[in-house]
Computed example of a mutant assay.
Amino acid sequence: MSTSPLANRRQFLALIGLSAVAVGCGTAVGGGSAGKGGTKTLRYQGWAGQVIPAELAADLGFLDDVKLEWVGNTISGPQDIQSAATGQTDFGGAFNGAVVKLAASGAPIKAVISYYGSDQHAYSGYYVLADSPIRSARDLVGKKVGMNTLGAHSEAMLDIYLQRGGLPAADADKVEPLVVPPVNTEQSLRQKQIDVAVLGGVLRDKALAKGGIRPLFTDHQLLGSFSAGTYVMTERFTRQNPDMVRTFVTGVARALDWTRTTPREEVVARMTDIVRKRKRNEDVDTLRYWKSYGVSEPGGRITGDELKLWLDWLTERGDIPSGKVRLESLYTNEFNAAVASTAPTPSGR
């Protein structure tokens, strides 16, 4: 008898596709090293049409002698941190639940700084067509929800919404999350290929500007303001390259704080310039809708609460054995030397 993929919904983070075997093979030191003239390089994956905090930090001149080497784009946080864990890149970022799950699988990683979150400006919304009959969690039974990846932030929020809506597990299993590339999600909703579209950031605001859709709920409504994702590095990499890691983390922290103290129009202009300069044939129009990275703590500092939320939740659900992961082993702020109250002065423009 075959088993529906949705039957494992209560173990949904297992869909990340991260195995202890795969992670155990990730013994590569990574590409971050000192080259000729003392140049230091960190390999990473980007997001099409977006400027991640690390890229902004580099453009602002906050990374000093550390250089970033783009190796391609991703649409999945879990895939991004798996690449970091296995040495294909030197850092990656994902939803904190995915970070906890990866650590529980045996990956020797640590979160070093928060890089995105949810606030009144930056949030993920679950949108339906304006005339859709969907109004509650129960209305989602048998419906399709399009999101960028499974087993990460979007599916976690959907799961919480269904739980809070009082939906029994048997009915929750009938709600079908589907992977849809972010750039195609709005179109898929409007063409009724999916019933609900998860939209965030500039893609959300661009879709709202067109009209014809309305929110069913948002992650900010569910949990309030919170830092949702962190950049991770392997423990081996941080041990072997402490100065480079400190420069990188502190530079990203300063970039996050710079976006808080700088007029939005100036931040958007800077991001637009960054995307144009890298010449990857990307649409810059969506950048004008950018408002915030949503990181709740100054300098992207990790309090532990943002990881504890998911550690406790995963443990209670049985996804992680009790005591398998210690909270204090998941993160460190030792490389973040930014002074949050100091407004940095950018260079390199």
Rank of each mutant, 00 (worst) to 15 (best):
M1Y: 06
S2M: 14
S4W: 06
L6M: 14
R9D: 03
L15S: 06
G17F: 01
A20W: 09
G26I: 10
T27Y: 05
S33L: 05
T39F: 04
L42F: 09
F62V: 11
L68R: 06
G72E: 05
N73R: 07
I81P: 01
A84N: 09
Q88Y: 09
F91C: 05
G92E: 08
V100P: 04
V100Q: 09
K101H: 14
A104V: 03
A107H: 07
A107W: 08
P108D: 15
I113H: 07
S114H: 15
G117D: 08
G117Y: 02
S118Y: 02
Q120F: 01
Y126K: 10
Y126I: 13
L129A: 02
P133S: 12
R138I: 11
K144M: 11
K144I: 14
A152W: 11
S154R: 10
E155Q: 15
E155P: 02
A156N: 07
G165V: 05
L167M: 15
P168L: 09
A170R: 13
D171M: 06
V175H: 12
Q187R: 13
V202P: 00
V202K: 11
L203N: 13
A207S: 14
L208W: 01
G212F: 02
R214C: 10
P215E: 12
F217N: 05
L222R: 06
F226S: 12
F226W: 11
A228S: 12
G229Y: 00
Y231F: 14
M233Y: 02
M233S: 01
T234A: 03
T238Q: 12
R239M: 11
Q240E: 15
V252E: 13
V252T: 13
A253S: 12
R254H: 04
R260W: 04
R260L: 10
R260H: 03
T262L: 10
P263M: 06
E265C: 01
V267Y: 00
M271D: 00
M271V: 05
D273K: 14
D273S: 11
R278N: 09
R278M: 09
R278L: 03
K279C: 00
K279T: 06
K279W: 00
E282R: 14
V284K: 06
R288G: 00
K291C: 08
K291V: 02
S292C: 02
V295S: 10
P298G: 06
P298L: 05
P298H: 06
G300P: 02
D305F: 09
W310A: 03
R317D: 02
D319Q: 15
D319N: 15
I320H: 03
S322Y: 03
V325H: 11
S341M: 07
T342C: 02
A343H: 02
R349H: 15
